[in-house]
Design a binder for these strands. Structure first.
Length: 111
DNA sequence: ATTTTGACGACGT
DNA sequence: GACGTCGCCAAAA
């Protein structure tokens, strides 16, 4: 069950492939997996990502608006933002600044 | 087993 | 462009 056995595992794999200092959106991952309209499942997978053996940089995954919608799910209140800022990502009020610039699209970057 | 919700997104109004 | 509704699919109540 290393490779893409199911939709969820794929999400984790893609999430781990996000480069340092870059971010992507749930929908982009879902689209890349062929389930463009199942963006919610990506988010749900992230929630379950804690159960995964390997760590998943869920903090690098935000919604299409570049908004840190899932920050409440993290341990701390602003932990997600802290992690992003630690990578050079500027975040103001849960919103990523210059989102277009740091956006990582698996459809293009990843074949 | 049925209903509700949810780390989203696209479309309609 | 802000707000509302629907669609997708899986897990929790």
């Amino acid at each position: 069950m290393k490779e893409s056995d199911n939709f969820f595992d794929k999400v984790y794999i893609i999430a781990r492939k996000i480069p340092f200092g870059r971010v992507t959106s749930y929908g982009s991952i879902a689209t890349y997996l062929g389930a463009a309209k199942s963006a919610r499942m990506v988010g749900w997978a992230m929630n379950n990502s804690h159960n995964q053996t390997e760590e998943v940089p869920a903090h690098r995954v935000v919604n299409r608006k570049g908004l840190l919608t899932g920050k409440h799910h993290f341990k701390g209140t602003n932990l997600m933002q802290q992690l992003l800022e630690n990578e050079g990502v500027v975040v103001v009020e849960n919103q990523i600044q210059d989102f277009e610039n740091i956006f990582w699209n698996p459809l293009e970057e990843l074949s």
